[in-house]
């Protein structure tokens, strides 16, 4: 499936440009401290080893537990997954457990903050699918920090090419 324009642009500037033989985007290297919560999700269809791992360091407990730091690891061959994981790390850092768990990933309107970080017009559906996968993993990492069992992955619809490519709608920088 084609990669949406929004994902392509985000990936090129925020991921590819920051990746090299001696460097990686900051959200994709291990935490400095041992994680207090972890979770994983099979975020790309096809099975095998397409597993996104999320690790957080959080302080406090209950609803006021706060994510101090968060990192992800994956084969990350899929640009949309890369972008979604990066965006969810950025969005989650500093937020409380209550804020993270309040987001209903099944409601696309509630993904608006993530789309805002992605940039561009529209809500490309390849990003929607990966936002939902990564959000589920981040929420389970928070639950793990709180000593709670992980919640089963909700049903996530396969991506379409809705809102994928309308480069003319972009304001060139």
């Amino acid at each position: 499936m084609a990669v949406s324009t929004a994902v392509r642009r985000y990936y090129a500037t925020e991921i590819f440009a920051k990746t090299g033989r001696d460097r990686a985007p900051p959200n994709f290297v291990p935490l400095d401290d041992p994680p207090t919560g972890t979770a994983h999700v099979e975020g790309c269809r096809g099975g095998g080893k397409n597993i996104l791992e999320v690790a957080i360091v959080a302080s406090g407990s209950g609803d006021v537990a706060r994510i101090e730091d968060i990192r992800v690891s994956c084969g990350l061959c899929n640009p949309a997954m890369y972008a979604a994981a990066d965006i969810l790390c950025t969005w989650s850092r500093g937020r409380t457990a209550a804020e993270v768990l309040a987001v209903d990933g099944g409601d696309v309107d509630q993904l608006a903050p993530f789309y805002a970080l992605l940039g561009g017009p529209g809500r490309p559906d390849d990003a929607r699918e990966k936002f939902q996968y990564v959000l589920a993993a981040v929420q389970n990492a928070v639950r793990d920090h709180r000593g709670e069992a992980p919640v089963a992955l909700p049903e996530i619809a396969e991506p379409t090419e809705r809102d994928h490519d309308d480069p003319d709608a972009w304001d060139e920088p």
């Binding site: 033989r21 001696d22 460097r23 990686a24 290297v29 291990p30 994956c74 084969g75």
Partner: peptide, 9 residues
């Protein structure tokens, strides 16, 4: 390679 982000690729 974990610190370089390339261990899985």
């Amino acid at each position: 390679f974990d610190q370089l982000g390339s261990s899985k690729n």
